[in-house]
Amino acid sequence: MKANSFLSAMGSLFFYIDGDEVVIYSSITGDTHLVDLETAKVLKKLNLDSMKYSDFLVYLADQHACIIDSELESYSKVLIEELKSLDLIDIN
């Protein structure tokens, strides 16, 4: 993943929050997914603002109150891959 890769939510996303679980509806695919609250927060952020991968790492570090290191980078890549496979985010 390049630092200047641009991440954005695919289309408009809609959320139903049930405690630590969130149902997400994608207007692009018409699919409904159940995700955990942390993942939903990421998607909500990307639904409002597109951001560079480097900024995304800063956002994740802030969310998890940690520094940007290789562990956070690995986690971010897994997360991005998973959301991309569900057609919930777009990478340019």
């Binding site: 139903y16 929050i17 149902v23 409904t32 159940l34």
Partner: peptide
């Protein structure tokens, strides 16, 4: 049952 899961099943 959890409401989120109920929503998913009804959908």
């Amino acid at each position: 049952t959890r409401k989120g899961r109920a929503l998913l099943k009804v959908a």
